[in-house]
């Protein structure tokens, strides 16, 4: 997963062109292209939408429409750790709100936003498919279950420690 530290100025458009080229032989390639771009950059910068449009000869407005339709796509860069908070049925019953409140509290990132230190981005998702271990969250692709405020706190502290260690 990309750490989202790439800013708009630094985008290497040849990477975008290569992704577009790779998929363009297929029909209906727009979504796979956007998915790979997001995997690479962490988000879909506006400038990239225009580039893809030129690359595969589809109106930019149409691509923009797709980006806004599907919940997966992000127009803003991400924090280093993407936390997906499950608000599915099982998690809702087993305390998803409690989890969301705790996460906002310990990361300083509100739902849908990134913390000031750019470490955490918090997103709301419908179900992570781990309902028997509710309540659940996913941190950069890894699911964590049977959460309590304490366990969340501990996990976040561990991340902070790791980051502090690698920074210093």
């Amino acid at each position: 997963m990309a750490d989202g530290s790439m800013t708009e100025e630094k985008i290497d458009f040849s990477v975008i062109d290569a992704i577009a080229r790779k998929h363009s032989v297929e029909r209906g390639a727009v979504i796979p292209i956007l998915q790979e771009v997001q995997d690479t950059l962490g988000y879909v910068p506006k400038a990239v939408i225009q580039r893809i449009a030129d690359d595969i000869d589809v109106p930019a407005s149409e691509i923009y429409g797709i980006v806004t339709f599907y919940a997966q796509f992000r127009l803003e860069p991400l924090g280093k750790y993407l936390i997906k908070v499950c608000h599915g049925t099982a998690c809702h019953l087993c305390g998803a709100e409690m989890v969301a409140d705790t996460i906002a509290q310990v990361t300083g990132a509100k739902e849908g936003a990134t913390s000031e230190d750019k470490l955490f981005t918090v997103e709301r998702v419908a179900c992570l498919g781990c309902c028997s271990l509710a309540p659940c969250i996913m941190i950069n692709g890894d699911t964590h279950g049977r959460l309590t405020p304490e366990s969340i706190d501990k996990t976040m502290q561990e991340i902070r420690k790791k980051e502090a260690a690698s920074a210093g």
């Binding site: 209906g28 979504i31 956007l34 797709i66 919940a71 796509f73 419908a126």
Partner: peptide, 25 residues
């Protein structure tokens, strides 16, 4: 393989097909 992009309605078959075709589902 095509990956869904996070829209519940795309589980509905005609919307799903639109999505594979690269359109809004």
């Amino acid at each position: 393989i095509r990956q869904g992009a996070g829209a519940f309605v795309c589980g509905e078959e005609t919307a799903l097909l639109m999505s594979i075709e690269g359109k809004r589902g």
